[in-house]
Nucleic acid binder design. Sequence first.
DNA 1: ATTTATATCTTTTTT
DNA 2: AGATATAAAT
Length: 760
Amino acid sequence: MENLLAGLNEPQKEAVLHTEGPLMIIAGAGSGKTKVLTHRIAHLMSKGVDSFNILSLTFTNKAAKEMRMRIEKVVGTDARNLWMGTFHSVFARILRSEADKIGYPTSFTVYDTDDSKSLIKSILSELQLDDKVYKVNSVLSRISSAKNRLISPNEYAQNPILLTDDEASMKPKIHEIYKKYADRCFKAGCMDFDDLLFQTCKLFSLFPDVLNKYQRKFHYVMVDEYQDTNYVQYMITKMLSHERKNICVVGDDAQSIYAFRGADISNIFNFEKDYPNLHIVKLEQNYRSTQNIVKIANSVIKHNKEQLRKDVWTSNEEGNLIELVKATSDNEEGRLVAQSIFEEKNHNQQKSSDFCILYRTNAQSRSMEEALRRLSIPYKIIGGLSFYQRKEIKDMIAYLRYTVNHSDEEAFKRIINYPKRGIGETSATKIVVTAVDNNVTIWDAMLNVSSFMPGRVTVAVNEFVDLVRGFELVIASKDAFEAAKQIAKESGILKDLYDDKTVEGLARYQNLQELLNAIKEFSEDTEKEDRSISAFLQEVSLISTADTKDANGTDYVTMMTIHMAKGLEFKNVYIVGMEENLFPSQMMLQSRADLEEERRLFYVAVTRAEKKLTLSYALQRYKFGRLENCEPSRFLQELDARFLKAPKKSNQDMFSDDFMTATSKFGGNNLMKQNSVNFPKKEAPKSQVVTTTNHVASESFKPSDTSKLEVGMKVEHPKFGFGNVLKIETNGSERKATIFFQKADEKTLLLSFAKLMIIE
DNA sequence: ATTTATATCTTTTTT
DNA sequence: AGATATAAAT
């Protein structure tokens, strides 16, 4: 007990000790929020609260896992029984045991975003709607936001505001698509991400006894990152804690960055209204960052009108000034950042893992990656395409999904003709349409296939049905790993990948092996009560890119989008791509006009830094293969210059026309002015030669250098490996050339050649 | 049904 | 630059 409060400041102690009744903790960046949460739980348990009765909702599975470990250190193995996880995973678990009450099979499967999009595409074509008008993404986001606000398809169809909105955007049929979409998901025995919350709410409202069961179970409810919860999540937590009102939410309105996903800051204000006797604790002392970083962060956020009064301060050292790096191009930006990391590492004896590069969009990782590789600095990209989003993995998962749930339409579409078994797209669509028209499941339609399909297809479909039946028996009789292994073999996936001897094919084969390993690990985890394939699928469907395991012992620079960086901290942070229309994002400015959310995002990025913060931007950047001019972000102009160091530039900069013109743009900005001094003339450094091999970095081939590439040359492409140039085609004004690239295996590929390296 | 050539589009962030 | 959709050829 003494131990639990040691090292906590007054408001932190207050938050830990206030266990009964509603509590809201407003936690500034770096104020020790996680510490308070873990200590609070440990405190509850030391008071004799059973861990079964505590529910803690976190933003990522990783955060839950870490918190559980920290608690376990204090209270021991009891912590295992805590209910901890994301909203999605916790309620998926509850839904799995209660699904039958709302008409879903216990073995319901989960649609990921790709599945949802694919289903919407099918529906659009069935309704004969133009997918140029009804863009899949916008339709899905419309449906998603309806679900997040607990609006059912019928309510949507009767909501004049929504209908007028849709008419105004020339998409009056959204309500119809929504209805059909929801219907199809239901009939497929599938829930999409939003359903996991939406259906939970439905379950709780329709079955008070079920709600009551969980109300009695969870004596204490805690919600982390409350500023990023949406309306459904607000409702669920409100319902769950209704009896005892022991609810504790933790958040920081200044760090709300998920409005695009339905997150609603007004949840924080609603919270105050819902609980008149609410106790509020503010954590304002920052333990993470230097004074300069805290101050510049405050200078960022003060430009936002809408925010709770809060005063984040620190007693840490003053620290370095914030650095500003200006580059002529995105590639140079990469080089400068990599060089800075290199120097910093040597200079201060730091590890690679002390560094983090943050960007607004995933696409920006490429130039950073290339630059780091050239300096042999190890790095790791978090996010982007995750393991479970790879085609070969999704295919295998689809087999498992379909075996568990014969109604799963999207899984069916994925595997019906992979590996090829002579059932083309037309046939597959016909089966789906027949099932929908006759109001039966896809499985039943297949059993009846001879009545509406020609004999040749019937035979193939029957074989497929038998295959799945066999898999069903396999799953029933063997453990998850053995079953998965057999399914991989008998489905033909394993062979299909094995036969592909290309570099990519080999990688895919290894990925599949890795998936099987993961299943093996899962099936041998004695801590898990349910080790079935079905449980594995559920877990896997909710793994997010933020949940990647830390490879312990490895030392690398971390690269990720700012969104993924929430909750993390690094000694040195580089925020790259500080350009108008990129950050703040063009999309954000045009369509949602929410500049304040972009600014909060910038605030989040800035506050990740402990010791040193560097901001960088480029004057030119490749966008869809075309070089575009960029202007520095308005956010840079907003910074308080007292905490900034003079911009740093490369030698090359001085000689480029672009640099000169771009500098003049900054005429009015005192920050940038200090920079316009004369630099000694020096020859621009040549592109570096890569490591010990005789490869020349791709840099030496500008898109205009078509002349350097000749027919017959041996070349290497980072993705497609070694090959020969067969033919070069230049399409005039485009300044873009395509080459025919022949690989060792005789396959001919068409490539643009920007990434090719000539082997001398 | 499947492969190959050509055209078009991409434009945020993620559970 | 690269993915994906569409059209045309096999």
